[in-house]
C-alpha cells in the first residue's frame, strides 16, 4: 500500500536542512510538490541558490529518508520556476531560525533585531556569509556577530 501524500509531507518535514539542521526542507520552502507516478514517488524541489552545494545533499537525504520509510523508488525533479523566494519559509521555520541564532529574512532588507538580546542597534558586516543564503551582521549592544538569512 502506498503511503498517503499527507503522510509523505510529514516525513519530509522531518528531513533537516543539512546546513541549518534546526529547520526542515519543508520549512525552507523548497519542496514544491509530491506525487505518485506508478510505484515511484516524485518530489519536486526548487533550489535556493543556483550554486548551493546543499542542494545535492538534500536530494540524497530525501531519498534516504524515503527508503527508511519503505519507499524504494524516489525521483527528485528539479523545478527552477517560479524561482525560490524566502517568502516560502514557513512561520515555524522562521521562529526556529531565530531560536537558533539566525535572524529570519525580512522584506525590509535587514534583521528586525539581534536574535540574542533583541536590540535593534545593528550593523551589517558583510552582504555574504557562511552559506549562500546568509549575510553577516553584528549587534552593537551585546556586541555578538550573528547570521541573517538573506531576503530574496
Amino acid at each position: 500500500m502506498k503511503p498517503e501524500i499527507t503522510q509523505i509531507w510529514d516525513w519530509l518535514d522531518q528531513v533537516p536542512d543539512p546546513e541549518i539542521p534546526v529547520i526542515s526542507v519543508v520549512d525552507l520552502g523548497i519542496v514544491r510538490g509530491v506525487a505518485w507516478d506508478g510505484d515511484t514517488l516524485e518530489v519536486a524541489l526548487t533550489p535556493t541558490y543556483s550554486g548551493c552545494p546543499a542542494t545535492s545533499v538534500i536530494s540524497m537525504d530525501i531519498e534516504t529518508a524515503m527508503i527508511d520509510r519503505g519507499i524504494e523508488k524516489t525521483r527528485i525533479k528539479t523545478q527552477i520556476s517560479p524561482p525560490w523566494t524566502t517568502d516560502w519559509l514557513s512561520d515555524k521555520g522562521r521562529a526556529k531560525l531565530e531560536d537558533y541564532g539566525i535572524a529570519p529574512p525580512r522584506t525590509a532588507g535587514g534583521p528586525a533585531h539581534c536574535p540574542r538580546c533583541k536590540s535593534e542597534n545593528l550593523d551589517r558586516i558583510s552582504q555574504f556569509g557562511s552559506t549562500p543564503c546568509k549575510a553577516q551582521w553584528r549587534c552593537l549592544d551585546c556586541l555578538e556577530p550573528f547570521d541573517y538569512f538573506k531576503c530574496i
Binding site: 533550489p47 541558490y49 543556483s50 550554486g51 548551493c52 552545494p53 527552477i80 558586516i125 558583510s126 552582504q127 555574504f128 556569509g129 557562511s130 549562500p132 553577516q136
Partner: peptide
C-alpha cells in the same frame, strides 16, 4: 575574511548558473 567569503559566494552563484 568578509571579502573572501563574498568572492567565494559570488563564484559559487556563477558556477551554479553555469550548470543551468
Amino acid at each position: 575574511i568578509e571579502e573572501d567569503i563574498a568572492l567565494a559566494n559570488t563564484a559559487l552563484d556563477l558556477i551554479g548558473q553555469t550548470q543551468m
